[in-house]
Amino acid sequence: MTTFRIAGICGSLRKASVNKKLLLRAQQLCAERIPSAVIEIVDWSDIPVYNWDLEENPPESVIRFKNDIADRDAMLFITPEYNWSVPGPLKNALDWASRVRLGDRGDVFKGKAVAVMGASPGSAPGSSGSGRAQLILRQSFVSLNCYCINLPTVMVTDAYNAFNEDGSLKNVRLENNIVSVLEQLIALGEKSKS
């Protein structure tokens, strides 16, 4: 049986990011509960600011990122929320990878299954756990012709206090939602490949 490969992409580049913790937890839950799949974390930290002038000779980091997406069966994005929006660097990376003529892989997003999760440190009433950023990112995936998992949602609020020392989430419902999203992502990815 072939292993289903998921590109894990964290929208925060900080090493100590709560969103990086969430991605690592999703990776661990996948390994523990879904042996037919693996989340492979994609590093995109060296992608430069998009510049049309570089399209004829794109940076190696851009080609590598685009190939990383093309080589996976589905994508899992973990996004923080900055001023109620998607982080600019993440949007920049998506802009680069969406350029069909870069490299020899063509349109790497078309028909790809994608899921979005996120965390935010906010704990005040109305904190969305990156919900607004997730919504904006999902809109980008509509333009990229991806198939997105909509429910259940994974929005971790008060994220600095949401994790146990071993990296697991204190909220068991969120842990189960992560597994459910991953299972649906795999099913959708398998369907879209066929």
Rank of each mutant, 00 (worst) to 15 (best):
C10H: 05
S128Q: 09
A93L: 14
N145L: 13
L102C: 01
V62C: 00
M117I: 10
G111K: 08
S192P: 05
R101S: 11
S12G: 10
T157A: 04
V86G: 11
A133H: 01
R72S: 11
N51G: 04
A31T: 11
R99T: 09
E175Y: 08
A93W: 14
L29Q: 04
L102H: 00
L22M: 08
D43G: 09
P121R: 00
Y50R: 02
A115C: 12
A70Q: 08
E81G: 10
C146R: 00
I39T: 00
V154Y: 09
L23T: 08
Y160W: 13
S61D: 05
A26L: 04
V62N: 01
I69D: 06
P35E: 12
E40F: 10
T79M: 13
S130G: 01
E40A: 11
V86A: 07
V181C: 11
Y50F: 15
S140W: 01
V108D: 04
A37M: 03
D158E: 15
P48W: 05
D107K: 03
W44P: 01
Y147K: 08
L102A: 03
S45D: 07
V154I: 15
A159T: 05
V116R: 02
S130R: 00
L185I: 11
S140C: 11
A31I: 00
I78N: 04
A162M: 09
I6Q: 12
V116D: 06
S194R: 13
M117Q: 08
K191P: 00
I149P: 13
V62L: 02
A93R: 03
Y160G: 00
D53A: 15
R72P: 00
A7K: 03
A162E: 12
T79D: 07
K20R: 14
I78L: 10
L22I: 09
S36Y: 01
S98T: 04
A16S: 12
L76T: 01
S98G: 10
S98F: 14
W96H: 01
D158C: 01
